[in-house]
């Protein structure tokens, strides 16, 4: 008879975190709730020794090393990028890995701390019935740069984390700054 261990705390947290991330990316603009605030649960859910990751805080760098992932010195070398503060309207992200048309899955996942208020944006594309409007505290220059980088199907996918709330913006989404 098969006996199965009950889920441990990590499994429960990862499962709930992934569910939030999955629905956030499936319905861009929808606000989903993570089981824990901050980047830790997301890193725990996605990053392990098969990944390379970049972070702009020392705590997050320690977290990445502890997961067994390769710590990238440059953003361009990372497939998971954890950013708490965008500099120069996000110009530091200009070298982010956008994959290739042959391998779109090489495009990076950007996890960025951004308050869910401020600049109004209109989103359209897969996952959105017609169009939806959201507010995100990211500089408008960031979206101009994203337009230049995301030559679909190349591009990078964004999770905007505000406390325990997350908004997903995949590369397939068209973002208009209002």
């Amino acid at each position: 008879m098969l006996t199965v261990a009950p889920p441990d705390a990590v499994e429960l947290r990862s499962n709930a975190t992934f569910e939030a991330l999955m629905w956030a990316l499936s319905r861009p603009g929808d606000i989903r709730t993570l089981p824990d605030a901050g980047f830790d649960a997301i890193a725990e859910t996605l990053v392990d020794l098969e990944c390379s990751a970049y972070a702009d805080t020392s705590e997050m760098r320690e977290r990445i090393v502890a997961s067994g992932a390769m710590l990238a010195d440059r953003i361009g070398d990372a497939d998971h990028v954890f950013i708490t503060a965008l500099e120069d309207a996000g110009q530091q992200l200009a070298e982010i890995n956008c994959g290739t048309a042959l391998y779109p899955d090489d495009g990076a996942t950007l996890i960025v701390a951004a308050a869910h208020r401020g600049q109004r944006l209109r989103l359209s594309g897969p996952g959105i019935k017609d169009a939806t409007e959201i507010a995100l505290d990211l500089p408008s220059g960031f979206w101009a740069m994203r337009d230049l980088l995301c030559l679909y199907p190349e591009g990078f996918d964004i999770f905007c984390v505000d406390g325990d709330k997350v908004i997903g913006i995949p590369r397939s989404t068209k973002v208009e700054v209002l």
Partner: peptide, 27 residues
């Protein structure tokens, strides 16, 4: 542990989760 919850081990699940997110991003 003799088994993992949901049969797959944590590293297999993380790999699938990463790929499932990319699959959603590029329908």
């Amino acid at each position: 542990a003799a088994t993992s919850y949901g049969f797959l081990d944590a590293s297999a699940k993380r790999e699938l989760r990463r790929k499932m997110l990319k699959a959603i991003a590029v329908p």
